Amino acid sequence: MDHSQPYHLYDVDEPAVRDRLGIDIQFLMNVDQGDTQMFDQGIITVDPGESVTPHVHRYSGETFYGLDGEGEIVVDGDPVPCHADDHLVFIPPGVPHYPRNPEDRDGPFRAMFVHSPAVLNGDTYTVDEDGNPADLEK
């Protein structure tokens, strides 16, 4: 990251959308792009009836803010509403979670996420329905 300026403008259409943990994820800022390790952030898009693979971050807390639609974040097995412009959901490190969009919803659920500190190699692993490690992810 260039620190010669006191700010940096990011074009939200610039970063590629990646298929990760079962859905489309667009990282706006992350370590892989040469950004700060203090945090990373991006946008998820979840279609009706879809969900992110259940996972845990060992070291990073994660916050979700609903941008469009009415989704939910399943946290340690309990669905928590995450609706556009209404809810901010924080998940501490070590807690199983995953965003989902119930199939009875009309359109996609979009949310911004922030990991603090940034997700680094080995921080995220997928889990089964009981929260037991399934395999390693980045």
Rank of each mutant, 00 (worst) to 15 (best):
P117Q: 02
G22T: 07
E50R: 14
V127M: 06
P102Y: 00
V31T: 14
G94R: 08
P102F: 01
T124R: 13
D128N: 09
M1P: 03
G22N: 08
T126I: 04
H115I: 00
D128T: 03
H8Y: 11
I73T: 11
V75C: 09
D68I: 05
R18K: 00
L88G: 10
D130M: 12
N30P: 03
G77S: 13
L21D: 05
D11Y: 13
L136R: 14
M38I: 04
D135T: 15
D85R: 05
Y98N: 06
Q26Y: 01
V46K: 02
I23C: 01
T45G: 03
I43A: 10
D24I: 02
V119I: 14
T45A: 07
D86S: 12
Q5Y: 02
T124G: 12
V52T: 10
V56L: 08
V127C: 07
R20S: 04
D40S: 11
V74I: 07
P108Q: 13
D35G: 10
A16T: 08
G42Q: 05
P96T: 10
S51I: 10
G66S: 02
D47P: 08
M38T: 08
E50Y: 13
N132C: 07
G71M: 05
P54H: 00
G122M: 01
R110D: 02
Y65W: 05
A16V: 07
S51W: 11
V75M: 09
D35R: 04
F90S: 07
Q41I: 04
P102A: 01
Y65S: 09
H97V: 06
D78A: 15
R110A: 02
S51H: 13
H97K: 08
A111K: 09
P79I: 02
Y125I: 05
G94K: 07
G94T: 03
F109T: 06
Q5S: 11
P79K: 03
H3P: 01
C82A: 11
R58W: 00
R110M: 03
Q37M: 06
V89N: 12
P96F: 04
Y98F: 13
L67P: 01
D128H: 02
V31R: 11
T45I: 03
A134M: 14
V127L: 04
H83W: 14
F90P: 00
E14M: 14
P15S: 03
G77L: 12
I73D: 10
G66Y: 04
T36K: 00
